[in-house]
Design a protein around this nucleic acid. Structure first.
Length: 165
DNA sequence: GCCAACGTTGGC
DNA sequence: GCCAACGTTGGC
């Protein structure tokens, strides 16, 4: 399987608990797209608002799940814009302090590109020298939107048996 | 279910 | 601005 993934772009890893939203959910969504809403951490917010760009590659990581693994690839199809769930009192991620005229929380839209079958397990990444610096593997790295270096991205795709061109 | 690690809050 | 208390994340 060969994918057209822009090598000059930037790469990210988005965490999700598959019991709430999985890569399969994304794959089955209309147009295979979703709004990546609900991020409530300032560091992750800054990345979503300022750094994540259209066409960037995204590894979808399943946390709190066995085996811990990267389930597939997505790409960014819309850049940072206000997360409406922050303004919805009925939403689990409602934030009464977020002013609609000066939103606190941002999200991007992503589109599934390719599932990994089988998923790339986190434990396996530890054995790959190119991945030794991955934020995902660092102790206590809780950030839910993480930058991924090009060599890390390439190594993950290689492990997944996905060829880049 | 435990708990280490980390982020946020709020009193001072 | 410090820092203790608290809440959350997420691997184990």
């Amino acid at each position: 399987m060969v994918l057209k993934i822009p090598r000059a772009g930037r790469y990210w890893l988005f965490k999700t608990e598959p019991t709430s939203f999985s890569f399969d959910d994304l794959w089955r969504a209309p147009k295979r797209r979703t709004q990546w809403d609900g991020v409530r951490n300032y560091q992750a917010r800054n990345l979503l608002r300022d750094e994540v760009k259209i066409g960037d590659g995204v590894l979808i990581y399943h946390s709190n799940h066995k085996p811990l693994s990267i389930a597939g690839i997505a790409r960014v199809v819309r850049e940072g814009y206000p997360d409406p769930t922050a303004f919805d009192p009925g939403d689990h991620h409602f934030d009464p302090d977020s002013d609609p005229d000066d939103p606190t929380w941002f999200m991007v839209d992503i589109e599934a590109v390719q599932p990994f079958d089988p998923p790339v397990q986190r434990d396996g990444l530890r054995k790959v020298p190119a991945c030794s610096g991955m934020m995902l593997l660092q102790r206590g790295a809780r950030l839910s939107v993480q930058p991924v270096a090009p060599q890390e991205w390439a190594a993950v795709l290689r492990l997944a048996g996905v060829a880049q061109r």
